[in-house]
């Protein structure tokens, strides 16, 4: 464990807290992509299958359960719970996620760390996480302006994998034979997708005023 990875996990937890607060207190999922939340649920349920046999640390096992539970709860609330379910707009949030899941599944089959079913599913979840934010970014693009809490949610989510990139650099230089090309590649793509958002987020928050984040 190092500070970058710890801060990354804290940023990830913060993103869950912000989103759960927004949809439970604000009683609205407006501006939130259910498609992205469904992809995250698939990512965590597939990646953390090793919960049952890989106890690398209590910290890891605990957070795996937290991430599966939170992502499932968020999908449940937005899909089935009133009044949030009525605030979800399927016309707006209509990114064809099958075009994300399909290629990631093929990539997981072809490029993985071992030819066991779990390694293929694990690689699939790594690739899928890299692109899971796309429906959310497309939704924000359509709406032009980003609600304040939503902008903090996306910023925390982007920061989490960005901090993981620093963690991988740190581990590469401090540990011998540390090699994780799959997550390095996917994590770079994932963080890259946020660069445009981060630029507008920074511009809107720079003046200290909480001007709304505007996406062109």
């Amino acid at each position: 464990m190092n500070i970058f990875r710890f801060l990354g996990d804290m940023s990830h937890i913060l993103s869950f807290v912000i989103l759960l607060l927004k949809i439970t207190q604000g009683k609205s999922a407006a501006g939130i992509s259910l498609r992205t939340q469904e992809l995250y649920m698939i990512v965590f349920c597939s990646r953390y299958l090793d919960l049952f046999w890989n106890f690398s640390s209590l910290y890891n096992s605990f957070l795996k359960v937290v991430f599966i539970a939170c992502s499932s709860a968020i999908v449940y609330i937005i899909r089935f719970k009133s009044p949030q379910k009525d605030t979800w707009n399927p016309e707006l949030d209509n990114f064809p996620i099958q075009y994300l899941i399909g290629p990631c599944a093929v990539a997981g089959l072809l490029i993985n760390q071992d030819w066991t079913p779990f390694e293929m599913i694990w690689a699939f979840s790594i690739y899928l996480e890299a692109v899971a934010i796309l429906p959310q970014l497309f939704l924000l693009q359509k709406q032009g302006e980003v609600e304040n809490l939503t902008s903090h949610y996306v910023a925390a989510l982007g920061a989490y994998r960005g901090l993981y990139l620093m963690n991988w650099v740190y581990r590469y230089f401090t540990e011998d034979d540390y090699l994780q090309r799959i997550v390095w590649f996917a994590g770079t793509v994932q963080t890259g997708l946020y660069i445009d958002f981060f630029y507008h987020y920074y511009q809107s928050k720079r003046g200290g005023l909480s001007r709304p984040v505007k996406l062109p």
Partner: peptide, 10 residues
Amino acid sequence: GNKPPAKDEL
């Protein structure tokens, strides 16, 4: 083949 690296990250 060589064992895949341990999965010690989330």
